[in-house]
């Protein structure tokens, strides 16, 4: 029996727009096991990003219970959430979200800066993360001097540099061509093998088929949840 890193129960996320409240997530319950590889699919507007933001502690539910890594997120302060985003979670965005004024390695080091890691340690770990994504030759390039796939690798390096338990990726290949997308997906496979829990949102069935479990959503609710293969990796 594997423990759950994410336990969402009866989650609502409501936006007050005009007269009728809009339920971006509606009475949603979902658990994700440690080390699992989950793909979330669904139409545009079905609430996938909203769900990812909640899991990633960028947002809070309107109601419901969220236990992350045995902690009740509801009880945490903003600064404690920031600290969780810093250490427990790595986020990969569709639009990369790199700081354009910084070089690749500076971008990768940034989470370590906020974690208070010493400078030498930072450089070492950032170089290692860049190596993992195969980009250590480009460490002094700025984002504008990198291709889309390379920028996404930098952002993955930034997401894993502080050794998170969970990697969240909201359409990580959405802005990339299929060849580059395959390369990025291979990277995710490796991370899963290293024991990181990966949750990704995608519209691409091929991408989703690399995961172990596929969750489909519509109108803020889960419509199907299927395991297509057993966990690739069963962490201790």
């Amino acid at each position: 029996m594997v423990e759950n890193v994410v336990e969402l129960s009866a989650i609502n996320r409501v936006y007050e727009m005009g007269e009728e409240p809009l339920y971006a997530l509606k009475d949603l319950t979902l658990s994700i096991e440690n080390g699992d590889y989950v793909a979330i699919m669904g139409q545009s507007g079905s609430g996938k990003s909203t769900l990812m933001n909640l899991i990633g502690c960028l947002d809070r539910p309107t109601s419901g219970r969220y236990i992350l890594n045995h902690k009740d997120v509801f009880e945490l302060t903003d600064d404690e959430l920031a600290s969780i985003r810093n250490t427990t979670i790595g986020f990969v965005f569709q639009q990369f979200n790199l700081l354009s004024s910084m070089t690749a390695i500076e971008n990768v080091m940034l989470p370590l800066v906020y974690a208070g890691v010493e400078k030498e340690q930072r450089i070492m770990r950032a170089q290692f993360a860049l190596q993992q994504v195969g980009l250590d030759q480009r460490r002094y390039h700025r984002p504008t001097q990198l291709s889309g796939g390379q920028q996404q690798r930098v952002s993955i390096a930034r997401a894993i540099v502080n050794k998170p338990r969970i990697l969240l990726a909201d359409e990580p290949t959405g802005a990339l061509d299929s060849h580059t997308a395959t390369e990025i997906m291979a990277l995710f496979d490796e991370l899963v093998e290293q024991g990181i829990t990966v949750i990704l949102v995608t519209h691409d069935g091929e991408v989703a088929n690399r995961a172990s479990r596929i969750v489909r959503m519509r109108d803020g609710q889960i419509t199907s949840d299927s395991r297509i293969r057993s966990q690739k990796n069963t962490p201790a």
Binding site: A82, F91, N97, Y114, A115
Partner: peptide, 9 residues
């Protein structure tokens, strides 16, 4: 971006 990767208030 800074907040998403862990910057505090």
């Amino acid at each position: 971006i800074r907040k998403a990767i862990g910057a505090k208030f």
